[in-house]
Design a protein around this nucleic acid. Structure first.
Length: 505
RNA sequence: GGCCCCGUAGCUCAGUGGAUAGAGCGGCAGGCUUCGAACCUGCGUGCGGAGGUUCGAUCCCUCCCGGGGCCA
């Protein structure tokens, strides 16, 4: 049974009273009540009646609902609801009753979901470009898990291809004291690898894993290309194929791709696409219902062909999702630094974390829409001060922790509410938004809604705190409940972002 | 040449059909004898352009301009 969602309950009650599916929005202008709906405007069209007349009729029905203090018809036909303090107090009690589960468990049908993320070839340390991939994919995975799905994170890497040969040859060259081959890999990290005997690939991978663990991304599995490659023949056997010009083609154009794809070249070599097919087959064979790929914008061409493979292998094409994120640019004093592994100006994740810290790094990478190219000013991000929104949110959590320490165990009681002050009403309403924010963020695979919301929660809390004393006030029990619930909501948001919620700062 | 993403305040960005479009940074002016001032309060005529759909468009459709990316 999912945790309670007071706004959803109210929405359902309003929908039933109106005889139509209703959405409640929170008006930006306080004079428009606590919640508003445009249902009368939508019904007016099909009923062929004036919107305000329809609204007037619905107003009378809504006014009798439990918890509704008043209903007004406004503007072209909006219905503005004001809830009473008792409803808000019960809502707060519901938040506390569900503990740290508030806002979660929204999945109607829990699925087994695999999120494949980062998957950078182990030819060098993880870069900031991969960090966006990781932060984004990991946050989406956290959202899925909180919603009630079973999630596994996988890292796929090439351990056997031409690039890896070149990488190994580059390390060998350094060991012999020679220059790496032309187009080979260079950089200080090669010397470190050269200093240790044996295959540098596993060692490089260990370093990558350590960097990602530091970045709070934990992988459940690592998949090697050489293993997947061995299953290519089985996969090809399952596809609709034909021969042309000595090559074997998959008829992906019949499944939404813009052209057919070669799976075996005329010289007998299998293509990357054939390996993709084998990999998808393997993922489904492991029992996943949904396969998530997190890929950079330069891979947008893969979407149609991967979904075509899914369909050809007998699965719904929508069960393969390719989440595309745009690139990251770092700036320092206005100077832009491009991130690319082959160039000298590449920025490694560990350096980035050394400079700005894990919390700020995840915050910046997650607070922008994934479809947005982002620019991060390293100097600003590194500043550990009130200029940085992540600390503003963390401060709310720490401040509440301080109050609760000073409360020395005094009991919170959401029901002990007298008439609520404006700041208290605003904060309770804000907390109640969490389930909807998370449902939306999960559905859209858009975790950047969380930082936006968390700032608003912190904002409402700081304003409340500034205006009202908690300890020693007549409303102490209620306000302790409000603080506790706020702390829980902030902690949930930060946890979904992979950011720490400190007790002290 | 085809395809993908994006043009919102001085800067970085939220806002995927609703009422007077928001936040952080930067700037200016205030607020600590009080549970944590990493806080609070005040100051902002900005949706690239033109058509279209709609009772209503920053949001949906078409074209143009501009920035980034991929493929050829």
């Amino acid at each position: 049974m999912p945790p309670p969602d007071p706004i959803r309950s109210l929405t359902d009650a309003v929908s039933e009273a109106c005889g139509a599916a209703v959405e409640l929005t929170r008006p930006s202008d306080e004079r428009h009540g606590d919640y508003a709906t445009n249902v009368a405007l939508q019904l007016a069209g099909t009923l062929r009646r004036p919107p305000r007349e329809v609204a007037e009729e619905l107003r009378e029905r809504l006014a009798g609902l439990d918890g509704v203090a008043s209903v007004e018809v406004a503007g072209p036909g909006f219905l503005n609801l004001t809830v009473d303090d008792g409803w808000l107090a019960r809502g707060l009690a519901a938040v506390l009753a569900s503990g740290n589960g508030f806002g979660g468990g929204s999945a109607d049908e829990p699925e087994r979901i695999q999120v494949e993320l980062v998957s950078a070839n182990p030819t060098g340390p993880i870069t900031v470009a991969s960090a966006r991939n990781g932060a984004y994919g990991d946050a989406v995975a956290r959202l899925f898990a909180f919603a009630g799905h079973e999630v596994e994170r996988e890292y796929y890497y090439n351990d056997a291809g031409a690039q890896m040969d070149l990488f190994r040859a580059s390390v060998e060259a350094v060991r012999r004291g020679e220059e790496p081959p032309e187009d080979g890999y260079r950089g200080a990290y090669l010397s470190d690898l050269a200093g240790v005997e044996g295959d540098p690939v596993p060692r490089m991978l260990e370093e990558i894993e350590a960097s990602l663990e530091r970045f709070r991304i934990h992988f459940d599995s690592f998949e090697r290309q050489s293993v997947v490659e061995s299953e290519v023949p089985e996969a090809i056997a399952l596809l609709e194929t034909y021969e042309d010009d000595g090559a074997v083609w998959a008829r992906t154009s019949a499944h939404g791709d813009d052209k057919d794809r070669v799976v075996v070249r005329s010289n007998g070599e299998v293509t990357y696409f054939a390996v993709d097919a084998a990999y998808i087959r393997r993922k489904y064979a492991r029992g996943f219902d949904r396969l998530i790929y997190v890929l950079g914008a330069d891979h947008h061409g893969y979407v149609a062909r991967l979904q075509a493979l899914s369909e050809m292998l007998g699965h719904p094409r929508e069960s393969v999702e390719v989440l595309i994120y745009q690139l990251v640019n770092l700036t320092r004093g206005g100077e832009a630094a491009r991130m690319s592994k082959r160039r000298g100006d590449v920025v490694f994740l560990d350096e980035f974390l050394d400079e700005i810290g894990v919390d700020a790094a995840r915050w910046y990478l997650l607070s922008r829409g994934h479809d947005q190219t982002i620019e991060i000013d390293v100097d600003l991000a590194a500043e550990r001060s009130q200029k940085n929104p992540v600390y503003y949110v963390q401060y709310a959590h720490a401040r509440i922790a301080g109050v609760l320490r000073n409360a020395e165990g005094a009991a919170p009681d959401a029901a002990a509410a007298g008439p609520l002050a404006d700041e208290e009403r605003a904060l309770v309403k804000r907390l109640l938004e969490l389930p909807d924010v998370l449902r939306e963020a999960t559905a859209r695979r858009a975790p950047h809604a969380i930082p936006t919301y968390a700032i608003r929660v912190a904002d409402d809390f700081h304003r409340f705190y500034h205006e009202h004393k908690v300890l020693g006030s007549d409303a102490q029990a209620f306000r302790l409940a409000l603080c506790t619930a706020t702390q829980g909501v902030v902690a949930t948001c930060l946890d979904l972002l992979g950011i720490e919620a400190p007790e002290r700062m």
